[in-house]
Amino acid sequence: MITTADGTIGAQTARPADHPVLGAAGLASPASLYRPLTVADTVEILADGAADLLAGGTDLVPALRTGRRRPRRIIALRRVLELRTRGASADGLIIGAGVTYQDLAGWSLSPGLAATARVVGSPQIRNLGTVGGALGTADPRGDLLTFLSAADAEVVLRSVHGARTVTVPSYLAEGRDPTELITAVRLPRPCGPQAYLKVGARQAASAAVVSCALVVDRVRERVACAIGGVAGRPVRPVAAEDFVRAGVDWATGTAPPDVVAGFGELVTEAVRAVEDPLPDDPRASVAYRRHAAGVLAARAAGRCLSGPSPVRSAGGR
């Protein structure tokens, strides 16, 4: 049981009705930590748009400590079990917003997502960080954002007015309304090799300086690529995707080395052309990131399009 210092109602059941908010400003504040058990309760508490959401805590808790974020109300989502489910249907995969990186790391239904999750942070962070948290924070270097952009994923948001589904690019452009809860991510079932590669300050437990996700769809004969860490949002190098798509022998799913190399060069060109490049920072210059994007893209294409390699994981590091 949680009680506030002034003895007001506990935050355990977390229905807004249980928290009489005193009308006169300054007399008292409502209980500031809510720990709901259901999505329905969560969106009710969120209805006035005045609460911060706590998922895995890896971003919010350090920000509370330094004072960078100072919410009056926090909704902790750890106990909302319906957010922690994942599953597959005929037409796609659905992953609850509360699913952790560790949950995804061993998920055989999406090898690219598993490969991405395995290189996020450290075991400690992977045990805490969630899909919904990654989208909520929307760090331009976020590993998961890069992969979800390449995988043509959609974000499911819910408020008291109902649910809506938006593509990842439009979610990243428009953001989440403060009254909405990210409940899930949907993405198509994998239909071919997938890879996620990143460069960072260290091989492990390090944020990506540049990342590259590649998703090959051998049924629809498409190649999708996303580059993270070069702009405010992951970049889709459309011309490079079209080039490699035309160069793949779709009967075997392979591409010759010159197509793979040309793909890397076109990705570098696409990164050069982005309108909102992330500026030089102490970890990497713009020129380095542009170069690294092309190298990673060609490497990823080499792994995914170099012919049968039944054993090797397409997502290796």
């Binding site: 949680i2 930590l33 808790v61 400690q124 045990n127």
Partner: peptide, 25 residues
Amino acid sequence: QGRCGSCSVLMDGRLVTSCTVLAAD
């Protein structure tokens, strides 16, 4: 900041950095 691991504990049997866990939660 969840980077050094010196505050590692198990929470419900899972390894976590206690500096990134909200205590009341």
